[in-house]
């Protein structure tokens, strides 16, 4: 219980402060009161100022994170299924190799990537952000999904095939529905990571119209150049978090434990 309390307080305190700060007026942004007084929507109005291009950046984020998630799921599902079902030499080594690739620090490849994408004329394009995100999302996705596919008894597929399914039908009608919790978990993780990705998105865009939300927030300008727009950054932070929370809540309903219970024995 204490552990849970500590974790909740530790995780939610910054978030709480973000929400509270977003409702303060710019003039009392440094107040330390637990609730803003007076409440103000000034920061939210500022965020939606067309000059900031915040809505456009949200749309960009949605495109980048959405595409990354969709592609990662398709590729990782097929890869993981092969990993779980096929027997080939050095399988463990391959799996370890896959997970190892996700451990490279992003910083170390930003400069080479920038050079590469410049040569390809990919700067200010969605693919310049999707491709790197995908390469970071895939290893973990494959790893998680492989574990899920392994839990599904192979007899279920065999039963489906005897019931008249092709291998493909057995996969789609039996295996995939049962691996759904894994697929949704992976979707959430991938989406959150791609949504919050900053370094690549910052480096690969110099056109404000192509910025993702995290980049746009970092470039918010205050009333004067000497003023950091903490208030509107906080408000934008809240707004950026909302889609994630919605996503998790929606998908969490699908993540029911023990979906394979009752299958065998």
């Amino acid at each position: 219980m204490i552990g849970v309390t500590v974790v909740i307080v530790f995780c939610l305190a910054p978030f709480y402060w973000m929400v509270v700060s977003s409702f303060r007026r710019t003039s009392d942004i440094f107040d330390k009161s637990a609730l803003p007084s007076p409440w103000s929507l000034e920061n939210y109005t500022a965020v939606f100022d067309p000059d900031q291009g915040f809505l456009r950046s949200m749309a960009n984020s949605l495109v980048v994170a959405g595409t990354t998630t969709a592609l990662a799921l398709v590729i990782a599902t097929l890869t993981a299924y092969a990993m779980a079902r096929l027997d080939f030499p050095f399988k463990r080594l391959v799996l370890t190799g896959i997970i190892a690739t996700s451990m490279f620090p992003v910083v170390s490849i930003v400069v080479p990537l920038l050079k590469l994408f410049t040569d390809w004329d990919w700067i200010n394009t969605y693919q310049a952000m999707v491709a790197p995100s995908l390469s970071f999302a895939l290893p973990l996705a494959v790893w998680i999904l492989t574990a899920f596919f392994r839990q599904i008894p192979i007899e279920l597929e065999q039963a489906a095939m005897i019931d008249g399914c092709t291998q493909g039908q057995a996969f789609r009608r039996i295996v995939l529905p049962l691996a759904a919790p894994g697929v949704f978990t992976t979707a959430i993780i991938t989406f959150v990571a791609a949504w919050n990705e900053f370094l690549i998105a910052l480096s690969m865009t110099n056109d404000a119209a192509m910025q993702t939300a995290p980049v746009a927030i970092s470039k918010f300008t205050g009333a004067s150049q000497f003023e950091t727009p903490f208030g509107s950054q906080m408000a934008a932070g809240v707004l950026v978090t909302i889609p994630l929370v919605v996503l998790v809540v929606v998908f969490q309903r699908r993540i029911v434990d023990g979906l394979t219970a009752g299958a065998v024995k």
Binding site: P153, E155, L156, Q158, A159, L259, G262, V264, K265
Partner: peptide
């Protein structure tokens, strides 16, 4: 022939019921 073209039905030892 693949299983689906054999017109057979099988009862597995662990039943292999579709849990969903």
């Amino acid at each position: 022939l693949p299983p689906k073209d054999r017109d057979i039905a099988m009862v597995f030892q662990n039943y292999a019921l579709y849990p969903h």
